[in-house]
Protein backbone atom coordinates (compact mmCIF):
# COMPACT_ATOMS: atom_id res chain seq x y z
CA UNK A 1 0.00 0.00 0.00
CA UNK A 2 1.16 3.53 -0.71
CA UNK A 3 2.18 5.62 2.24
CA UNK A 4 -0.21 8.43 3.11
CA UNK A 5 0.97 11.88 2.13
CA UNK A 6 -0.10 14.40 4.76
CA UNK A 7 1.49 14.82 8.18
CA UNK A 8 0.47 16.67 11.29
CA UNK A 9 2.28 19.75 12.55
CA UNK A 10 5.72 19.19 14.04
CA UNK A 11 4.80 21.42 16.96
CA UNK A 12 2.69 18.47 18.11
CA UNK A 13 5.90 17.04 19.53
CA UNK A 14 6.30 19.99 21.90
CA UNK A 15 2.67 19.84 23.02
CA UNK A 16 2.85 16.11 23.65
CA UNK A 17 6.12 16.58 25.54
CA UNK A 18 4.50 19.11 27.84
CA UNK A 19 1.55 16.78 28.40
CA UNK A 20 3.88 13.91 29.15
CA UNK A 21 5.94 16.09 31.48
CA UNK A 22 2.88 17.03 33.51
CA UNK A 23 1.84 13.40 33.68
CA UNK A 24 5.29 12.30 34.74
CA UNK A 25 5.42 15.01 37.41
CA UNK A 26 2.30 13.50 38.92
CA UNK A 27 3.82 10.04 38.58
CA UNK A 28 6.88 11.35 40.41
CA UNK A 29 4.76 11.93 43.50
CA UNK A 30 3.58 8.32 43.35
CA UNK A 31 7.05 6.96 42.79
CA UNK A 32 8.55 9.00 45.62
CA UNK A 33 5.76 8.08 48.03
CA UNK A 34 6.34 4.39 47.43
CA UNK A 35 10.10 4.88 47.66
CA UNK A 36 9.72 6.73 50.94
CA UNK A 37 7.77 3.89 52.51
CA UNK A 38 10.14 1.29 51.19
CA UNK A 39 13.10 3.26 52.55
CA UNK A 40 11.57 4.08 55.91
CA UNK A 41 9.75 0.92 56.86
CA UNK A 42 11.48 -1.84 55.00
CA UNK A 43 15.14 -2.31 54.42
CA UNK A 44 14.64 -2.34 50.67
CA UNK A 45 17.17 0.14 49.36
CA UNK A 46 17.85 -1.88 46.21
CA UNK A 47 14.14 -1.74 45.39
CA UNK A 48 14.17 2.05 45.75
CA UNK A 49 17.12 2.20 43.40
CA UNK A 50 15.29 -0.01 40.94
CA UNK A 51 12.27 2.30 41.13
CA UNK A 52 14.46 5.32 40.44
CA UNK A 53 15.94 3.65 37.38
CA UNK A 54 12.47 2.66 36.22
CA UNK A 55 11.31 6.23 36.65
CA UNK A 56 14.18 7.56 34.60
CA UNK A 57 13.46 5.09 31.81
CA UNK A 58 9.77 5.94 31.96
CA UNK A 59 10.59 9.64 31.88
CA UNK A 60 13.00 9.53 28.99
CA UNK A 61 10.73 7.28 26.96
CA UNK A 62 7.53 9.20 27.39
CA UNK A 63 8.93 12.75 27.43
CA UNK A 64 11.92 12.54 25.12
CA UNK A 65 11.38 9.75 22.61
CA UNK A 66 7.72 8.80 22.43
CA UNK A 67 6.30 12.16 21.23
CA UNK A 68 8.79 12.27 18.39
CA UNK A 69 8.12 8.66 17.34
CA UNK A 70 4.42 9.27 17.57
CA UNK A 71 4.68 12.34 15.36
CA UNK A 72 6.87 10.54 12.84
CA UNK A 73 4.25 7.85 12.40
CA UNK A 74 1.21 10.07 12.22
CA UNK A 75 -0.13 10.38 8.68
CA UNK A 76 -3.47 11.08 7.10
CA UNK A 77 -5.03 11.70 3.74
CA UNK A 78 -8.32 13.21 2.67
CA UNK A 79 -9.83 12.33 -0.66
CA UNK A 80 -13.22 13.01 -2.16
CA UNK A 81 -14.62 9.55 -1.48
CA UNK A 82 -12.77 8.56 1.66
CA UNK A 83 -10.26 9.54 4.28
CA UNK A 84 -7.43 7.58 5.79
CA UNK A 85 -5.60 7.89 9.09
CA UNK A 86 -2.44 6.06 10.10
CA UNK A 87 -0.85 6.19 13.52
CA UNK A 88 0.68 4.23 16.36
CA UNK A 89 4.19 3.52 17.51
CA UNK A 90 3.99 -0.03 18.78
CA UNK A 91 0.79 -0.99 17.00
CA UNK A 92 0.50 0.70 13.64
CA UNK A 93 -3.06 1.20 12.65
CA UNK A 94 -4.41 2.42 9.36
CA UNK A 95 -8.09 3.31 9.24
CA UNK A 96 -10.30 3.92 6.24
CA UNK A 97 -13.44 6.01 6.65
CA UNK A 98 -15.70 6.39 3.62
CA UNK A 99 -16.81 10.01 3.26
CA UNK A 100 -20.42 8.94 2.92
CA UNK A 101 -20.25 7.58 6.48
CA UNK A 102 -19.02 10.78 8.10
CA UNK A 103 -21.78 12.36 10.15
CA UNK A 104 -20.12 15.46 11.51
CA UNK A 105 -16.75 17.03 12.17
CA UNK A 106 -15.54 18.83 15.29
CA UNK A 107 -12.84 21.43 15.63
CA UNK A 108 -11.19 21.15 19.05
CA UNK A 109 -8.62 23.34 20.70
CA UNK A 110 -7.47 23.15 24.31
CA UNK A 111 -5.46 25.92 26.00
CA UNK A 112 -2.13 24.27 25.29
CA UNK A 113 -2.95 23.63 21.65
CA UNK A 114 -4.15 27.20 21.33
CA UNK A 115 -0.88 28.54 22.65
CA UNK A 116 0.94 26.61 19.95
CA UNK A 117 -1.64 27.66 17.33
CA UNK A 118 -2.71 24.09 16.84
CA UNK A 119 -6.08 22.39 16.78
CA UNK A 120 -7.54 18.90 16.54
CA UNK A 121 -10.13 17.69 14.10
CA UNK A 122 -12.51 15.03 15.33
CA UNK A 123 -14.51 13.00 12.82
CA UNK A 124 -17.67 11.17 13.80
CA UNK A 125 -19.33 8.33 11.97
CA UNK A 126 -22.43 6.53 13.20
CA UNK A 127 -20.18 3.98 14.86
CA UNK A 128 -16.76 5.44 15.49
CA UNK A 129 -14.85 8.57 16.44
CA UNK A 130 -11.51 9.47 14.85
CA UNK A 131 -9.22 12.26 15.90
CA UNK A 132 -6.49 13.96 13.92
CA UNK A 133 -4.57 15.70 16.69
CA UNK A 134 -2.45 18.83 16.55
CA UNK A 135 -2.93 20.25 13.10
CA UNK A 136 -1.98 23.77 12.21
CA UNK A 137 -4.89 26.04 13.14
CA UNK A 138 -5.66 27.19 9.63
CA UNK A 139 -5.16 23.74 8.23
CA UNK A 140 -7.57 22.27 10.78
CA UNK A 141 -10.22 24.80 9.92
CA UNK A 142 -9.75 24.14 6.25
CA UNK A 143 -9.90 20.41 6.84
CA UNK A 144 -13.18 20.70 8.74
CA UNK A 145 -14.60 22.59 5.82
CA UNK A 146 -13.34 20.13 3.22
CA UNK A 147 -14.61 17.10 5.08
CA UNK A 148 -18.03 18.57 5.64
CA UNK A 149 -18.40 19.39 1.96
CA UNK A 150 -17.24 15.93 0.91
CA UNK A 151 -19.35 14.21 3.51
CA UNK A 152 -22.87 13.98 2.30
CA UNK A 153 -24.32 11.36 4.51
CA UNK A 154 -26.43 8.97 2.57
CA UNK A 155 -29.28 8.64 4.99
CA UNK A 156 -30.54 5.40 3.51
CA UNK A 157 -27.70 3.36 4.88
CA UNK A 158 -27.19 5.22 8.16
Amino acid sequence: MVQLSKRISERAVSVWRIHAFIRLAIFFLGYSLISFFLWRFGDLKWLVLLLAVLYLIHFSLSVVFWPRWRWQRWRYDIREKEMEVECGVWTRRRTLIPMSRVQHVDFRQGPLLKKYQLASVVIFTAATVHEIPALDEQEAEQLCHIISTFAKVDDRDV
Binding site: G88, W90, T91, R92, R93, R94, T95, L96, I97, P98, S100, R101, T125, A126, A127, T128, H130, D154, D157, V158
Partner: peptide, 28 residues
Protein backbone atom coordinates in the same frame (compact mmCIF):
# COMPACT_ATOMS: atom_id res chain seq x y z
CA UNK B 1 -22.00 0.30 2.25
CA UNK B 2 -22.85 -0.65 5.83
CA UNK B 3 -19.28 -0.47 7.05
CA UNK B 4 -18.59 2.73 8.97
CA UNK B 5 -14.85 2.34 9.10
CA UNK B 6 -12.24 -0.29 8.46
CA UNK B 7 -8.81 -0.50 10.04
CA UNK B 8 -5.65 -2.51 9.55
CA UNK B 9 -3.26 -2.67 12.43
CA UNK B 10 -0.03 -4.42 13.16
CA UNK B 11 2.12 -4.68 16.24
CA UNK B 12 5.84 -4.93 15.83
CA UNK B 13 5.68 -8.72 16.14
CA UNK B 14 2.90 -8.96 13.60
CA UNK B 15 4.81 -6.80 11.17
CA UNK B 16 7.80 -9.08 11.46
CA UNK B 17 5.67 -12.02 10.43
CA UNK B 18 3.84 -9.99 7.76
CA UNK B 19 0.49 -10.27 9.52
CA UNK B 20 -2.27 -7.73 10.13
CA UNK B 21 -5.33 -7.36 12.28
CA UNK B 22 -8.39 -6.49 10.25
CA UNK B 23 -11.21 -4.73 12.07
CA UNK B 24 -14.51 -3.33 10.97
CA UNK B 25 -17.02 -1.08 12.71
CA UNK B 26 -20.66 -1.30 11.71
CA UNK B 27 -22.35 0.10 14.81
CA UNK B 28 -21.28 1.95 17.93
Amino acid sequence: HRIQSMALSATWFQKRKRLRTLSVAVMP
